[in-house]
Design a protein around this nucleic acid. Structure first.
Lengths: 179, 179
DNA sequence: GAGACCATGTAATGTGTTACATGATTTT
DNA sequence: AAAATCATGTAACACATTACATGGTCTC
């Protein structure tokens, strides 16, 4: 899971030169759902990649506003392609909603049901966000970025559906128990 | 996303008293897929929870082997139930496989297809692990822990299915392009 | 002229993993 | 008798977020 930010930068720059700010926008818009990055990571890593010869920075002021635009060097392009061909290092999830679901047995029937409902509500929120992105970026998000977006939407649709099923199952059990 | 380990400990102890080692086993067996915890977090947090009156530790040697068994105090039980009723703080994913998928356009057709295939292979691996857990813990994993497991299995089945579809779609595109 | 946005950066803080250290017991 | 498992703990390190600091420009 090491050197993650570097790959985000390299990948972002492939679609054309960008400032640190631009990269942050891309991250917040798209990759944040599976790979977040803060300025505190981005800017130092940009310098490191320049020092390492993987990217080059040019001063490109916009109006009177200073701005450094970065682009890939051939070395950087190779590094990106090499990384893409390597097996993925890993996968980490930290999901408080699921943790609550796991322990929901500590609550009584209807409160436990509430945990599932809250979990679903959260995922419906994410689903809405993803659909907003899809609407906004209909043009830009073609090819693989669009595929990743489709993945996220489909995944969250599945999750919401699963929750609804479980909620029904639990409701029926509660009814039976109440008799 | 703060104080996460505390809730894992509280939840784990609800099903009966446990040593730090026991809790680590539970984490590695079950919650690790959505909430991991290392000894470096667990042991200090156990002390903190004792100091805070949420759990109590008793020396219960097993043979000549020292062992401290922890159990919930009423305070701890309340804290667990309160936490369960609160809205979930969040949700974080760091998925290198998806990041590669997102940038796979930097590779040529069949290499890009390889990224999807590698992604699927990884998820098939996780699916196998989850099914192993299900087989091993058929008895213990009833109720909500079992539900969380079902969720994980269903989710990964969906993912594998999605990958197969995409692989076909890309294959067809490659064939057309080759003509 | 106020507020949003573009733009860059760092320091403090928080969080979590890895490696190391130690030692008993049980299984093969 | 070796290897695996039970059991507890800490120190060093890696990684990431948050808050802060600064200042220009664009839009209402």
């Amino acid at each position: 899971m090491k050197a993650g930010v570097a790959n985000v930068i390299l990948g972002a720059l492939r679609q054309g030169p960008k400032s640190g700010y631009d990269i942050k926008q891309l991250v917040d818009n798209a990759t944040r759902f599976f790979w977040a990055a803060s300025y505190g990571q981005l800017y130092p890593e940009l310098r490191r990649l320049v020092a390492d010869g993987q990217i080059e920075g040019t001063s490109r002021p916009r109006g009177g506003r200073q701005r450094t635009e970065y682009r890939l060097t051939p070395t950087g392009r190779d590094a990106l392609r090499t990384w893409l061909r390597e097996p993925a290092a890993g996968w980490e999830v930290r999901d408080e909603g699921l943790l609550k679901l796991f322990f929901a047995g500590a609550l009584e029937g209807d409160d436990a049901l509430g945990v599932v409902r809250a979990f679903r509500a959260d995922r419906e929120g994410v689903l809405r966000q993803l659909r907003d992105v899809q609407r906004r970026e209909a043009k830009e998000a073609e090819g693989f970025p669009g595929l990743a977006l489709e993945y996220g939407i489909g995944l969250h649709e599945w999750i919401v559906g699963w929750c609804l099923e479980i909620e029904e199952r639990l409701s029926r059990q509660l009814e039976v128990a109440a008799r």
